[in-house]
């Protein structure tokens, strides 16, 4: 009797877990299969008939290709470099400088950051970018994303910078290093895992961001992939599933590649601390 109960509860547990896993896995499986299916619809099924023609049509769309392999890369990459660089320097300054209430400042900034990239701030942001003459420029998009993501990035970086003992830096100074040399030789290598986390996180955020480029950009030549995907919709506004999925699959590859590269090269850690 007890054995039966054990078996039943186990079975029920695995059934529930499988159902739960399916909920997340099915859309991914669909995204993997549908692009290769000549007659794809919303059902998950093995591609039949199997085809690569969908990708052919996607690559024939010069606007979408340019959006994915040029504009998205420029915008996400640009924001990634800017955020990572600025967040590292700012976190370093916040960690080391004797500023009163700097913890409150950090927390405050994080709260603000969620507002800046939010919909509510779009009108003032639009006006700001307009008066700066940066409407319909990639730089405008990069700056807005940088401003929005920087506070949280600084917050993440601070944990990494705080974990470096002061004596490391002092030891470098006494060894004869300049302030910049100390930062480059000691602090930077130690916080590099943190910089990688911030870089990938920023890239993913901008890569998937739709609203900001949609509002700030005008000409098709500047649109990123998140906006350009609408070129695979019919004029009636319904998505052409074969093409949107093919494009979406291509759309995920750079992010996956970046993540795998960083993980292989540096390893991911979401906390500070010295790995010796």
């Amino acid at each position: 009797m007890r054995l039966l109960r054990l078996v039943v509860t186990r079975a029920a547990f695995y059934a529930a877990a499988a159902l739960f896993a399916c909920f997340f896995a099915v859309p991914l499986v669909w995204l993997l299969f549908a692009p290769f299916d000549a007659r794809a619809n919303l059902a998950v099924r093995l591609p039949h008939p199997f085809t690569l023609a969908n990708f052919g049509k996607v690559f024939a769309n010069a606007f979408a290709v340019r959006a994915l392999f040029q504009n998205s890369i420029i915008q996400a990459g640009g924001a990634m470099l800017l955020v990572t660089l600025l967040a590292t320097l700012a976190a370093y300054a916040l960690s080391r400088a004797p500023i009163r209430g700097k913890d409150m400042l950090s927390y405050g900034l994080v709260l603000f950051s969620s507002i800046v990239t939010g919909t509510a701030a779009m009108v003032p942001l639009f006006l700001l970018i307009y008066s700066l003459g940066l409407i319909d420029t990639q730089l405008g998009v990069i700056l807005v994303f940088t401003g929005g993501l920087l506070p949280a990035a600084i917050f993440i970086m601070r944990d990494f910078v705080d974990s470096i003992p002061r004596s490391y830096e002092e030891s470098a100074l006494v060894s004869g290093a300049s302030a910049w040399g100390m930062f480059r030789d000691i602090a930077l290598p130690i916080v590099r895992p943190g910089m990688m986390v911030v870089a990938v996180w920023t890239f993913v955020n901008v890569w998937g961001g739709f609203f900001v480029p949609f509002i700030l950009l005008r000409s098709p030549a500047n649109m990123p992939a998140s906006v350009a995907i609408y070129s695979f919709y019919t004029e009636g506004g319904t998505p052409i599933i074969t093409l949107t999925t093919a494009y979406s699959l291509l759309y995920t590859i750079p992010v996956l590649a970046l993540y795998l590269f960083v993980n292989w090269r540096y390893g991911f850690r979401f906390f500070g601390g010295i790995k010796s």
């Binding site: 004596s167 490391y168 002092e170 030891s171 470098a172 006494v174 000691i186 290598p189 130690i190 010796s276």
Partner: peptide, 12 residues
Amino acid sequence: GMVFQDYALFPH
């Protein structure tokens, strides 16, 4: 030349 209490060797 200075020797620190925690030695302050660069871990990387």
